[in-house]
Design a binder for these strands. Structure first.
Lengths: 192, 192
DNA sequence: CTGTTGATAGACAGATCAGTCTGGAAAGGT
DNA sequence: ACCTTTCCAGACTGATCTGTCTATCAACAG
């Protein structure tokens, strides 16, 4: 909202930063309100004035992650021109994320398992629809005869890779998913 | 242990049954000890004498599910002879599970997101290793030149299907995963 | 009949959580 | 200088959770 040049971040921004770190690292359910406001250096009343409830703070946390993830992928795909490379680049971008030291799996999958509720469900549905649209669009650009079908299969790989990277503590899941995506893409193009 | 013909189930059995229903339906973290013992019709002291802690009860719950899931797949695969059909049958079996009314995703993925800890981690690692071995073995029987690689890719699809079926509330994820598995298998065999 | 074993019901302790409320301080516009 | 808005610090409520402990009861072996 504000156009502050480099001033102190607002209470809202500090809360979102703290929530993002704590919720992702330790889990939405494990981390209490007190931990968040302590790290943000903010009064409890400010949190409830700004967000209304913990559920809504969680929603804002997920919406922020949604935006950051898609930005990151878009930035990564800029380095490629060929549609085929751009499609496979999604899985390479995932590999970068997996390799980061604090990777703990898909924030949406974790949050929806930890604390089901309307706010989390809505944020999750929105994120998943965006990923699906991205993959379907890339499949279309790559010339797949049935982009919806290929997009869905790629989404399965995308989900499976994030789950596997977390549960097996193995970032190389992205290499396997990239290879599988390549196979699926080639098969789809061959059938055209 | 006991060889009772059809007598009353032991406290341990009743606890496991209650834990299985409640933990899976509502989440490991959400359901308290009191709910479990109430449904099992068992005293709290009996639970702690039998399992020692909630974490160990969760471990027993996951180990029970591990055994039941693999039994179910094995039973399903008995109807097929051809290695190719048996491999793809894993994804059909998954589809049966997805279509059940109370399906809420992979119990291991949920539990490890909800309550990380040694007991859950160990049970999860064991389950994932078993699934990986199953898929790799089927890939080998089907004649894949690199069964480990194909098994891993199939595991990605298996994980992705369970995550997608839950998060999108769409049991047809298994049809997409089966189709993708078929494509991956054919490509692996063609490369042989 | 009696002593032992194992189960039951439930109170209790100790900790933690979300959310409300009070009281006061700082900042910024007029 | 004043006033309004925003923010901070923290006490407090009521609920919930795991795990322990006491006390009672039933069955059964000797």
């Amino acid at each position: 909202m504000s156009v502050r040049p480099a001033a102190a971040p607002s209470a809202r921004e500090r809360l979102l930063t703290a929530a993002n770190e704590l919720f992702y690292d330790e889990g939405v359910h494990t981390v209490g309100i007190d931990r968040v406001i302590e790290r943000a250096g903010v009064a409890k009343a400010s949190l409830y004035n700004t967000f209304g409830s913990k559920d809504e703070l969680v929603r804002a946390y997920l919406e922020q992650r949604h935006a950051l993830i898609l930005q990151r992928i878009a930035r990564y795909l800029q380095r490629y021109d060929a549609p085929r490379d751009r499609l496979l680049g999604v899985f390479e971008a995932q590999g970068e994320v997996f390799a980061e030291p604090g990777y703990r799996g898909c924030a949406f999958a974790s949050a929806s398992a930890e604390s089901p509720g309307d706010a989390v469900s809505q944020a999750t549905d929105s994120y998943r629809a965006a990923v699906r649209a991205l993959l379907t669009g890339l499949a279309r650009e790559a010339g797949a005869p049935n982009p919806e079908q290929l997009g869905r299969q790629l989404h399965l790989l995308y989900d499976g890779a994030s789950l596997s990277a977390r549960m097996d503590r193995d970032p190389s899941a992205s290499a396997a998913s990239r290879a599988a995506a390549e196979t699926l893409l080639d098969a789809a193009l061959a059938a055209a």
